[in-house]
Amino acid sequence: MKSLSFLGRIALFAMVGAFVLVPLAQTIMTSFVSTLPRAGIAEGHFSLINYLNILHSPVLKEAILNSIIYVVLNVALCLGVGLPAAYAFARYSFVGDRQLFFLLLVFRITPTVVLSLPIFVLFAQIGLENTPVGIALVHCVFNIPISIWILEGFIASVPREFDETAFLDGHSLPSFFFRHLVPAIAPGIGVTAFFCFIFSWVEVVLARILTTTGGKPITMAINALFGFRTDFGLVMAMTVLALVPGIAMIYFVRNHLAKGFVIRT
C-alpha cells in the first residue's frame, strides 16, 4: 500500500515535469535547426547556425548586455533599499507602518500595463527613456515590495538578541548590517535576488514602452526579429539564451526557494 502511493506520487511528479518540459523541448529543438533556406545547410536539419548568427549580430549582443545591465542594477537597487526597510519592518513599529506596507502591496499587484502610460509620460519628460537605467528604476515598483517581504521574513527569524549583542560590541548600524546581518541571512538575500531577478527579467510591458528607439533588452530584440519572413530558429535560440541565467539562478537557490515567505499584511 505504501509503495503504491509512492509510485503514484512519482508518476504524478513525472507528469508535472513532462507538462513543464515538453513545450520547452520543442523550443530548444527548433533553436538547433536552420529554419530558413540557406546555402550549404539543409533546412530542418541540426545546425548551430542560429547561435552563430547571434554571435555575429551586434544588435542581439547589445540587447543581451542591456538586459544584464538593467537586471543587475535593479537587483542591486532593490536589495540596497529593501534591506534597511525590511529591517525597519521586522524590528520596529512606527507611525504609518501598516499604511506603508499597504502601499507597497498595492504597487506590487498593480499590473504593469496599468502603469505603462503614466510611466512613459513621466520618464519621457525627464529623459529616462531608451536606457537600461530607466528600466532598472521602473521595475523597482514591483520588486521593492517583493524584496521587503522576503527579507523581512528572514530577518524576523533571527533573534533580536543577535542585534543587541552586536550593538553592545560597538558596531554601528551600517557595520552591523554588513558584518553580521547580511552573512546571517545570506540564503534570504539569495532568494530575494532570485525573485527580483526573475520578475525583472521577464517583464516586457514597461520594458517595451521605455525602449521604443534604443536600449532594447533581449525581450524587445526578440520582438524585433518578427517580420515578413521570421527566422524562427533565431527567435528560439534567443529565447533559449534568455532562459539560461534564470535557470542557473533557480539551481543556486533550489534548497532555499520555499523559505522566507512569512508575509504580513
Binding site: V20, L24, I198, V204, T219, T239, L243, M249, I250
Partner: peptide, 8 residues
C-alpha cells in the same frame, strides 16, 4: 522554470 521565461 516557466517563471523565468520572458512573458512575450
Amino acid at each position: 522554470v516557466p517563471l523565468v521565461v520572458p512573458w512575450n
